[in-house]
């Protein structure tokens, strides 16, 4: 047998015995990031073909949600930082090799874009607020201008939103050190899931039955695509390196993530809503109408949660320890200052 173990205990917080640097803050951030991307895309698409009045909510009112949702995400991202005072350092450098650096700057583009989107649709979307703005001359001027360039704004918004959606996946998939994350498909998966959750959100928010139905159909499509991508991802792992196979074990073993992944994500997060939403098209039902989209949203979060956590547990090396590292807490307790 090969016995390979740490004979000096190592208990570096969040690194030992298992990597645990990122928890719900990052999962939530990635979820809201994806959702934002979806919101912007749908708002922009709707704005682009004004002709069908069906999607009036998404065309005029949806955009307002983007900065709100995104800000929630940014907040949890900030909460995750260990050295918070130095958050401004994201913007004193641009590191082309670092997805996180890209992300930081992409967000800087997203915000103005969403603001423009909102302004360009403020009058139809939120007449009350628009009314106030129109009282001030420059306010009126801004609204005139933005609504004139509504198309152009939408055209800029779509690619930047897609970038955002994909980035939320790339952020993780760029880590060669964490086998489960290290797959090109993660970007696509997170983008699709982001769109699906956005669709679900519209289903919940939109008033017009016609608009709801448009998005139910859209969502069904997206869920089907998502299932395909997930399948590809699993096949990738199954045919990958020894580390990838180990990662796959986590998804298949019960004391790993089997339950969370198969039952809750695949089952309740994708399959059930798929069925429910199909049924919705045929015969409406007040409760089910809510259930479908809610499950989609939960599934969307669960996907991030599982990915973030599982990815950290998959590594190139896992050493056992001869001694019980918990005992080091005794020193941490008594010797905060000295080494």
């Amino acid at each position: 047998m090969l016995e390979e173990l740490l004979v000096t205990p190592r208990f570096n917080p969040k690194v030992d015995p298992l990597l645990g640097i990122w928890t719900w803050e990052i999962s939530v951030y990635l979820f809201f990031g994806g959702l934002t991307a979806g919101i912007i895309v749908f708002a922009a698409l709707a704005a682009l073909n004004k002709k069908d009045a069906v999607r009036s909510f998404s065309a005029n009112s949806l955009a307002l949600w983007a900065p709100i949702v995104l800000s929630l995400g940014m907040t949890t991202l900030f909460l995750d930082l260990e050295h918070k005072l130095f958050v401004f350092r994201f913007y004193t450098a641009f590191v082309p090799t670092s997805p996180m650096s890209w992300g930081a700057w992409i967000l800087m583009i997203i915000y103005p874009v969403t603001i423009l989107q909102i302004l360009s649709t403020l009058r139809p979307g939120y007449p009350l607020i628009a009314g106030f703005v129109d009282r001030i001359s420059i306010g009126r001027w801004v609204l005139d201008l933005t609504s004139r360039y509504q198309r152009e704004i939408a055209i800029v918004a779509i690619p930047s939103a897609v970038a955002l959606g994909i980035y939320t996946g790339i952020l993780l998939s760029a880590f060669n050190a964490r086998p489960f994350w290290n797959s090109g498909l993660l970007g696509v998966l997170f983008l699709v899931s982001g769109l699906s959750t956005a669709a679900a959100m519209v289903i919940l928010l939109a008033k017009e039955k016609a608009e709801k139905h448009w998005y139910v159909r859209m969502d069904i499509g997206l869920i089907l695509v998502e299932l395909v991508v997930v399948a590809l991802l699993l096949i990738n792992l199954a045919t990958g390196s020894e580390q990838h196979l180990k990662a796959l074990e986590y998804l298949t073993s019960l004391n790993g993530y089997a339950l969370a992944f198969w039952v809750f994500f695949i089952g309740l997060g994708l399959m059930v809503p798929l069925v429910v939403e199909f049924r919705e098209l045929v015969k409406e039902h007040r409760v089910l109408a809510l259930l479908g989209p809610i499950l989609v949203l939960l599934g969307g979060y669960l996907l991030r949660h599982i990915t973030v956590n599982l990815g950290q547990e998959t590594a190139w090396q896992d050493y056992r320890m001869e001694h019980n590292p918990q005992l080091l807490e005794r020193v941490k307790l008594n010797y905060k200052t000295e080494n």
């Binding site: 570096n12 917080p13 969040k14 690194v15 030992d16 990597l19 640097i21 990122w22 995750d80 930082l81 260990e82 050295h83 918070k84 130095f86 958050v87 350092r89 994201f90 670092s98 996180m100 880590f175 060669n176 050190a177 964490r178 950290q312 590594a315 190139w316 090396q317």
Partner: peptide
């Protein structure tokens, strides 16, 4: 350093600490 921990995730040798 912001403490974003990306470098920790990036190190296959788990050689970094907070």
């Amino acid at each position: 350093c912001t403490g974003c921990k990306a470098c920790i995730a990036a190190c296959p040798y788990d050689a970094r600490l907070i």
